[in-house]
Amino acid sequence: MASGFKITPEHIALMKDVLIEHVPHAKALGMTVVNAAPGEAWLSVPYAENLVGNPETGVIHGGVITSLLDNACGIAVQLALPERMSIATLDLRIDYMKPATPKLELMSHTHCYKVTSSIAFVRGTAYHSDEADPIATCVGTFMLSANRSMPMTPEAAAEAMALFAQKKGGAA
């Protein structure tokens, strides 16, 4: 499926802009879209001391892998859809194969292999350099057009962020 359109550099740029730059948590983790294809995405997260789950070994917390895979699955779904629409994670199952190696960058490869009228199915792997030697694997389902019918354009996202910052300032 999803082979009827080509991924252009603009498409990837949009993914980076909308799905990373305007997603505060993805930005906070230093997430980057490394590569993209129809229905497929490759992301990375650099090693950082504040992401450590075990201070004795320096191993990254499983939650970072969860965030990476969740975000990467969402991007793979976007890349499987002929047009942008809002999506929401329904469920995500993660299996942890081995601890991440301290100091190494985390990579993920996610693939949206089926899209129905309302649901997208995705699977993915987190690894360091060799996908055949995974740190974790995941399967997930996403609901399409979950929250609003209009896709989030970079402008809309920026506007929302500004509003959000204002609201936060006012409340505090």
Binding site: H22, V23, P24, H25, A26, K27, A28, H61, G62, G63, V64, T66, S67, L68, L69, D70, N71, G74, S86, T89, L92, I94, N147, R148, M152, A156, A157, A160, M161, F164, A165, K168
Partner: peptide, 20 residues
């Protein structure tokens, strides 16, 4: 703010909820 996954709603990031 760094926990936000969807700034439009706004909503917490799914990964954050999973990690929590």
């Amino acid at each position: 703010e760094k926990l936000i996954g969807n700034p439009v709603l706004p909503a917490l990031h799914g990964g954050v909820i999973g990690a929590f």
